[in-house]
Design a protein around this nucleic acid. Structure first.
Lengths: 200, 200
DNA sequence: CAGACAAACGGAGGACCCCGCCGTTTAGGG
DNA sequence: CCCTAAACGGCGGGGTCCTCCGTTTGTCTG
């Protein structure tokens, strides 16, 4: 199935010994580098034409490697997503459940606030079959962390990893155009973890 | 000066308070009606051309009445904003501080979740001089409510009305493309008001 | 080493959008 | 009934997204 080439192209930034031509690999790398630079400046609504131009590549080539905007964004943020997943599995073994979860949430907030467009890319579900969608990827990685915290009574039992993810990305989205920036995100995160108005 | 409808007064207060020509008023009304319909379908990223087309009006006429996208969105959501402000002042006198605030937050969440594009329009600060920007408008209206709750110890002292507003709109933004919709927003709101992980 | 063939490329072009300009229409006061 | 300023809207330039399609080029094979 043609999906093989796509999956390979997107997620396999590390292992690429596949039936792909050398020039294709080269262009993929140029596109990814250009996309990182452009997204860092313009966020998730970056002009795809501009990315192709920066990479000195035809616009059709970009679309061949990344069929839609979300695919490009996923690739751009893939390393950061991976790092967060690794941190989640790491924290799941150490520390006490509550501080582990909080530390992870804070790391997530930091990433999402500092990388322009990352929060937006976590909310968009563009392709119907997004088994590899960044959001679910992160959610499944964080799930054990949340379950463990729930078991210890550190979070409400009905709170899922997806919920926490949604709240954090939401805060980032709402503060993105906001000048104060990352500091604001951190403040709001503590606000919601402690509770806006907890029952006495 | 302010004899005209509220919606009109809001957008045109700073440009001109003079009596408009009859055709201008008529076109304004048509544009607003068209915008409400289109925004309800396509959200905040609605095509301005499409709005003008639906209103059977030239695109320049739209730009004359609404100099930028945010102005149009502000007008579209003005009634809802007004209603929320009225509710805020109403609740500020009745009920106990905490339930009053919570009720208002819930009402806000409901509005923002049901009206497509409203959350987005609350985050965008397009024009530099937006003293009448919807967000600040709402924030000042909610401020007494928050202060009263803070005085009663129902919210953290460092939480401002703008903070609560940001959190709620953020949740709405993060769940907008999400199929589950308004129910999800409500769930997440209780989650953050109670606290994701309050200290024991 | 020299084809051959599929993989990959990139330009062109259509559809749409935002935006400003500017000539034309028309409402409404004198 | 005019006259003027307010209001209108068409047009064109520049941009993006996206698709098609002819051309180049890597790579595999004989």
């Amino acid at each position: 199935m043609h999906d093989v080439s796509h999956t390979q192209a997107h997620t396999q930034a590390h292992t690429q010994a596949r039936p792909q031509r050398a020039d294709a690999r080269r262009n993929y790398a140029r596109l990814l580098a250009a996309a990182e630079a452009e997204v860092a400046v313009h966020g998730a609504e970056v002009s795809l034409e501009q990315v192709a131009r920066t990479a000195q590549v035809g616009s059709a080539t970009l679309r061949r490697h990344f069929p839609n905007r979300q695919a490009l964004l996923s690739a751009v943020f893939h390393q950061r997503i991976e790092a967060l997943c690794a941190l989640a599995t790491d924290l799941a073994t150490k520390d006490d459940p509550r501080t582990a979860l909080l530390e992870w949430l804070r790391a997530l907030a930091h990433y999402v606030a500092s990388a322009r467009g990352m929060a937006a890319s976590l909310t968009i579900a563009e392709s119907p079959d997004d088994a590899e969608h960044c959001f679910t990827y992160l959610a499944t990685a964080a799930d054990p962390l949340v379950r463990r915290a729930a078991a210890a009574g550190a979070v409400r039992a009905d709170a899922t990893a997806a919920d926490l993810l949604t709240v954090v990305t939401g805060i980032a989205l709402a503060t993105e155009h906001h000048p104060s920036g990352a500091a604001e995100v951190d403040r709001l995160l503590t606000l919601v973890t402690e509770g806006l108005s907890p029952r006495t």
